[in-house]
Simulated assay, not measured.
Amino acid sequence: MRHKPAGLARRRPRLGDATSWGLAIGEAPARIKFRARAAQVACCTEDAAQMGVPRKLKLEHPPVGSGTRVEAGTCLLALSGRAADLHYLWKPEQTLMEYAAGITTATADLAQAARRANPHVSVACTRKSFPGGKAILAGAPYRTGSACRRLCWSLRSIGPSSVPRPPPKR
């Protein structure tokens, strides 16, 4: 996707992470692994990984690609770095992947059911999103071969670089 995922982290308070400060572990080396709680279609894992770049977090392995169907327990993303940096980004990264995967999984399941009934059916999703989420979540249906209804008009105010490209024809 073509938004700036680090912007999500900048919305956090600039005071740092209270857990790291309170336990005096901010400078300690640490790791975090994000795992799928249930079977799902992963989404925005690459964006979550990019959120760690400004804080110099290291990828332990490439994230599971957006649009990949995974089983419960699959490691979606693993990062290492200073505990303070990991604690600071933990919730924004988790929320981004959780919301996007929920929408992508529901869309994939709906499209799959519709295509069982009619292999030539097109599935188009609503443009509704949560505040600040349009540029992030507009691409979720495209990961499943679906589309967003009248998306170009609604993203005009965000800018053309944010408009996700549809998947290639199968």
Rank of each mutant, 00 (worst) to 15 (best):
M97T: 03
P54C: 08
S66F: 04
A138W: 02
A48K: 04
A9M: 04
V64R: 06
R165H: 11
D17S: 11
A113R: 11
I158W: 04
G65L: 15
M51Y: 06
A138I: 02
R150Y: 14
Y88E: 09
S154F: 07
G102N: 03
T68A: 08
P131T: 05
R116T: 13
D85V: 07
T68S: 14
P13Y: 01
D109C: 09
P168D: 12
L77F: 10
R127N: 12
H87R: 11
L8E: 01
P62V: 00
C125Q: 03
I136Y: 03
R31D: 09
R150H: 15
V163C: 00
A24W: 02
K128I: 10
K134C: 07
S161E: 09
L8F: 09
L155C: 06
A24L: 09
P131Q: 05
K91V: 05
S146L: 12
W21D: 09
L79M: 01
F34G: 03
I158P: 00
P164I: 02
Y88D: 05
V123H: 07
A9V: 10
V41M: 06
E46I: 11
K128V: 11
R165I: 07
T126C: 07
Q40C: 15
P141H: 06
A9R: 02
L96A: 00
A42V: 08
M1R: 01
G65D: 11
G52W: 00
I158L: 09
C152R: 13
L23P: 09
G22S: 13
C125L: 12
K91W: 03
V64H: 05
F130T: 09
P92H: 04
D47F: 06
E27L: 12
R35C: 15
Q50D: 08
R149N: 13
P168S: 08
P160R: 02
Y142D: 12
A147C: 14
R127K: 07
T144G: 06
W21P: 00
R10E: 11
L155I: 09
P141A: 09
D47M: 13
A106L: 11
S161I: 08
L110T: 10
M97K: 07
I158A: 06
R170Q: 12
A39I: 05
G22W: 04
E98Q: 15
A36E: 03
A111W: 01
A114Q: 07
A49L: 08
G65H: 12
G73W: 02
A140M: 14
C125E: 02
R69E: 10
Q50E: 13
S122D: 13
H87S: 03
E27I: 01
E46W: 09
L86T: 04
D17G: 10
G67R: 00
Y99M: 13
S162D: 04
L89V: 07
V70M: 13
R116C: 12
Y88P: 06
V64I: 05
A111K: 09
